[in-house]
């Protein structure tokens, strides 16, 4: 009898608990992500007016108690029709893709080293990776301005080594943007890679060696495919924010570094064209969603081979 009551209680608490555990974060996302998204979506269908806020409401009450809904699609046609915006999108995707690839190439050996390090060392290395989070992101990007400037230490060292005769332009170049991107997003690449590599059963590598596979080959035959989920997660965590990145191209990039984050900023604050800025944001979101869905499909397809 007592056991039955206990079982029911356990069942109830686990059910309620499970719902709460899932429900609370979803509720949070619903309120603080979905609602703002809907507001942005609404603005993207609106017109510019000289008012506060500088957009025309979509829903209006007409004279005879008629609810009028005006959906203005011209912002979207404008966005797709303008070469500047298309170029900004393409450029952002390219910069993000290259940065992601660089972060992966640098991050994988790092994560591998941490995952294979001995006990205490592993903790220290792990802490070092997360150390940048202790300082503001903005400050860290600003620091690069000082480092890369004409009178900065990077130029000084290069001149001291005799590699260059006079200071070279490092700031406001694509190089500086890539540097800033890789630097800022590297931890987001390393952490999921670390957990994937750390989970890898080392006996599998022994099995590969036992069957005649050299370590270098075993990396590609066993380690890489079995850490694929970490690679995908790391790439998404770097790629998605990198596409919409505003601060790094604004501070380190040159005037011709065209990235969608800056364009959205300019539309909002310089042109006060909220509807076009919102339309740009929605298009960006759609592009990224397509990427995520494609990746998920690839992943699901590999998991269940027919």
């Amino acid at each position: 009898m007592w056991n039955a009551i206990q079982a029911i209680r356990r069942r109830l608490t686990t059910q309620v608990g499970r719902k709460a555990v899932i429900g609370i974060p979803y509720g949070w996302l619903l309120i603080f992500f979905l609602v703002p998204f809907l507001i942005v979506l609404k603005i993207s269908f609106s017109n510019v007016v000289l008012a506060m806020p500088p957009v025309e409401p979509i829903l209006t009450w007409g004279r005879d108690q008629v609810l009028q809904i005006r959906v203005n699609l011209s912002n979207y046609t404008f966005v797709f029709g303008d070469r500047l915006y298309v170029a900004a999108f393409v450029n952002s995707l390219r910069v993000a893709a290259v940065s992601t690839l660089l972060a992966l190439l640098i991050g994988y050996p790092m994560a591998y080293g941490i995952a294979r390090a001995q006990g205490a060392w592993r903790n220290i290395l792990f802490l070092l990776v997360s150390l940048p989070f202790f300082t503001s992101f903005l400050l860290r990007v600003y620091a690069w301005i000082g480092l890369l400037g004409r009178g900065g230490p990077v130029n000084a060292i290069l001149m001291h080594l005799g590699l260059i005769q006079e200071p070279i332009q490092l700031l406001q170049t694509d190089f500086a943007v890539y540097l800033g991107m890789v630097y800022s997003y590297l931890p987001f690449m390393v952490l999921p890679l670390y957990s994937a590599i750390e989970k890898l059963d080392l006996t599998l590598l022994e099995a590969a060696a036992d069957l005649g596979c050299r370590p270098s080959k075993a990396f590609f035959a066993v380690t890489l495919p079995l850490t694929r989920e970490g690679i995908l997660a790391g790439c998404l965590l770097v790629f998605i924010p990198a596409v919409g990145e505003y601060v790094i191209p604004a501070l380190l990039g040159g005037p011709d570094t065209l990235m969608i984050g800056r364009v959205v900023w300019d539309e909002f604050f310089a042109n006060r064209d909220w509807p076009v800025a919102s339309a740009l944001a929605i298009v960006l979101l759609l592009i990224l969603s397509v990427f995520v869905l494609l990746l998920q499909k690839v992943q699901a397809g590999e998991e269940e081979p027919s």
């Binding site: 059963d201 006996t203 599998l204 022994e206 099995a207 590969a208 066993v222 079995l226």
Partner: peptide
């Protein structure tokens, strides 16, 4: 291997 160590 004891755990068989099959490649998953």
């Amino acid at each position: 291997f004891q755990s068989y160590a099959l490649f998953p």
